[in-house]
Computed example of a mutant assay.
Amino acid sequence: MRAKLFPALVGDILDTMGHLHQFLKPEIRPLKPEHVIVGRAMPVLEANAFGSREPDGRGPLSERPFGLLFEALDDLKAGEVYVATGCAPRFALWGGLMTTRAMHLKAAGAVLDGYWRDTPEVAASGLPVFGFGGYAQDQGPRGKVVDWRVPVEIAGVRVAPGDIVFGDLDGVLVIPRAVEQEAIRRALEKSETENKVRDAIQAGMSTMEAFRTFGVM
């Protein structure tokens, strides 16, 4: 996929298959323009908090700064994408030390419904990280991970554990596991056809004639 496809093309195929809402919100952008991310989703569910510890809390996470963040991060597998959502974007969901751990685990990267921090360190690592941008405010007293490896939604797009996450400068696409083989096969076929269309247009064929001839544009 990284060598032969791009998210826009696969998204077009998913449209034809009836999966019309698979791109995450456009605010989720790569830290570096050249970043491409592809891997299996490891969804992480966040919640806003109002202190690192809450002595009067009734839940098991009340006394735990960051909640289950460390357990979730340590559970990342090779080729997986850490996908975090669930809280208001008031603090960073990712940072330099998390990047170091994710790279040691050979993760594919991170997609955040919010911000990262330690931008120079994360950028220098080369790990693909997508989100709203850099923002230094710490998660510690403001948010907790409450669960992971559970289905989540980002602006109405469902992300289930094991779905393929595919992103570049044009956006992040979620490919449901149930249809991934057909979607990728058809995308590879369309890629070959688009190359023929490009060659034909470069040779002088009109766009109308190209569409009539090849059926794609």
Rank of each mutant, 00 (worst) to 15 (best):
L127N: 02
A200S: 10
P120F: 04
A92N: 11
K144G: 01
P43D: 03
R2I: 14
T85H: 01
R212N: 05
S206E: 07
G109T: 02
S191P: 12
V174G: 05
L127V: 04
A41H: 06
M205K: 07
P43C: 09
W148R: 01
T207H: 12
L24Q: 01
V179T: 06
R177D: 10
Y82K: 01
M17Q: 06
P65H: 07
E121Q: 10
I37G: 00
G51N: 11
E27C: 02
D15V: 14
L68K: 08
A92C: 14
V174W: 06
R29V: 03
F211K: 08
Y82H: 06
I154S: 01
R158F: 08
K77E: 11
F214K: 04
I13W: 03
P7E: 06
L69H: 09
A124V: 11
R58E: 15
V197L: 04
E71W: 10
V83K: 01
R2N: 14
F66C: 10
T16S: 14
H35C: 06
R29Y: 01
L169E: 15
I184Q: 07
Y135K: 11
T99C: 11
F6T: 13
A88H: 04
A203Q: 14
F91A: 04
I28D: 00
G167R: 02
D56F: 14
P30N: 03
T213I: 07
Q181L: 14
R101A: 15
G95A: 13
L9H: 09
D118L: 04
R90T: 11
V10Q: 12
R142F: 11
M98Y: 12
F23N: 06
D170H: 10
T193I: 15
G96V: 02
D56I: 07
G215R: 04
I201R: 05
A3V: 14
E71H: 10
L73W: 07
F132H: 02
G39I: 02
R186D: 05
T100L: 13
G57S: 11
L76W: 07
E34G: 09
P120I: 05
M17D: 04
V81R: 00
E121H: 06
E209T: 05
V216H: 05
A3W: 15
L5R: 09
D15R: 12
G167V: 02
V150Q: 13
V146I: 12
D75M: 09
R177T: 13
W116N: 03
A155M: 12
K32F: 03
W148P: 00
D163M: 13
A72E: 00
I175Y: 10
G156S: 13
D75C: 09
A178D: 10
A3G: 13
D138K: 15
L188A: 11
A84M: 03
R212H: 07
P26F: 02
F6L: 14
M42A: 08
E153C: 10
